[in-house]
Structure formats: C-alpha cells, structure tokens
C-alpha cells in the first residue's frame, strides 16, 4: 500500500471498522466476520446490487442501501440486521422461491445450494406467495453441462463471470420481467455455441442448480469456486 491511501473509519453493527477508498460496506463487513446475506454478489465479479438481500440500514436515513455497491463514509453507522431487514430479506427470498420451480428434493445441488441454505439461515420455512409454476426448458445440448431455467434466480453471476473473467461473453439475457432468460449467444443451444470455451466457470459460480455438470444426480453437484479468487489475484498481480 502506498503512503497516500485514504482510510475511512465507520461502524458496522456497533463495532468500529475501517475501509480503503475502494472497499464497499459488504467487503468490510466480510473482513470483520459479518456475513451480510447476498445471492448475486461474488467476490471477484462486478457487484450489481440486484438481489437486494444485502440491503442495510444507515443511521439517519430511512432508505435502505445495497451494501455490495455502497462505499462507506467516514463516521457512517451501518446496521446489517434488524427486524425490518429480516422481514424484507425473508420476503425477497419467498418471492424468489415462488418465481420458478425450485424443488430441492430432486435438485442436483440439494445440500449445496445458496438459495436453499439462505432460506434455512433466514428461517424461511414456507412461502406465503403463490407459486407461479412457469414452464421453462432445460438445455442439455452441451456435452459437459446443462442449464435448467426452472432453477435460475437471475442473479447474473454466470453472465458476469463469462464476460469479466473468461472474456467470452457467451451468456446474456433476453426478454424482461419474469420472462427474463439467461441465454447462450443469440439464444441458441449451448452445445452449438461458437463463443463458449466450455470452461465451466458459469456452472461453478451459479448459486443454485440452474447450471450443473451433466451426469450428476440429486445432491451430487457441489460447486468449486477456488478458481475465482486465484484468477482475480493473478490478474491484480499482472496489472501492477
């Protein structure tokens, strides 16, 4: 670190903490053992603030702030857990469960799923909203991987990892609202993609069973993400 780094001090849940210019509230919270819930954020990928689970309260403001994209200010008092936050987080999670067909019992990532474990952590034991039960297809055209849109929560991690880390930008989105769909190239079968390098990064950053390796049965698909911090570290080293 150079001598002219600016350090800000602020408070998370009553404990004084410090941050550099580039760190977000979420970064600093993680460093200090405060595990703010999130499903779209992943260290090493651009933060987009879209799952809205990492919203926190800031003293003096009634507005909630997504901690993954907010830089702390000197003296700021951040609250990461409150009845209001818990209520909103539970509701958002319930909305996600109601949106597509998340049937844990038959899912390849059962036991390794972030959506599932988030429900457990936030004590969501049932979903009050009516399940929408949409009809989405499964694309099994790729020799190694498959995508089941029924299990997708549209967190965008696969789109970002493919664009930012692999540099292929094979994935993007089409349609809008609840019809939004993660697509391969121009919405063709994955197996026929010219841009896909079959690296599998998207599969392993996916928080749910939407992206999985082929041949895995129920609960067999554990995600391996060690590559991401490693690649990010190497890249940082190279740019210095």
């Amino acid at each position: 670190m150079s001598g002219n780094t600016t350090i800000k001090t602020f408070v998370i849940d009553g404990n004084p903490v410090s941050a550099t210019e580039s760190e977000t509230i979420l970064d600093v919270a993680r460093q200090n053992g405060v595990n703010i819930p999130t499903l779209c954020n992943m260290s090493g990928l651009t933060s987009t603030g879209q799952c809205r689970l990492c919203m926190v309260e800031i003293a003096g403001s009634n507005r909630l702030t997504p901690s993954c994209v907010t830089k702390p200010e000197e003296g700021m008092e951040v609250v990461t857990e409150s009845p209001r936050l818990l209520k909103y987080r539970q509701m958002i999670l319930e909305l996600l469960f109601s949106e597509r067909n998340h049937i844990c019992a038959v899912c390849v990532t059962n036991g390794n799923c972030e959506l599932q474990s988030m429900a457990q952590r936030l004590e969501v034991d049932h979903v009050r909203y009516e399940y929408l039960h949409p009809k989405f297809k499964v694309d099994g055209s790729h020799p190694k991987f498959e995508v089941d849109h029924n299990r997708c929560i549209l967190c965008g991690r696969c789109v970002r990892v493919c664009d930012e880390i692999e540099g292929a930008h094979t994935r993007d989105l089409r349609n809008r609202g609840i019809q939004t769909l993660v697509i391969t190239d121009f919405d063709g079968p994955w197996g026929e993609s010219k841009s896909c390098t079959s690296c599998g990064k998207c599969v392993h950053v996916c928080p749910t069973g939407a992206l999985a390796e082929k041949g895995k049965s129920v609960a067999e698909m554990a995600k391996r993400r060690q590559f991401l911090p490693y690649l990010v570290m190497r890249r940082k080293g190279a740019s210095k």
Partner: peptide, 21 residues
C-alpha cells in the same frame, strides 16, 4: 409495470407479478 419490469432486481420482477395476481 409487471410487463415493463426489466427483470434485474427480484422485488420488482416477482413482486409486481404477485401484486398483479
């Protein structure tokens, strides 16, 4: 609003559908 939601954030994307229903 439901049809025009861009689909980026969960509360708007799913919340508007549930409200509509």
């Amino acid at each position: 609003s439901m049809e025009e939601s861009c689909g980026k954030c969960a509360p708007c994307r799913v919340g508007t559908v549930q409200l509509y229903n």
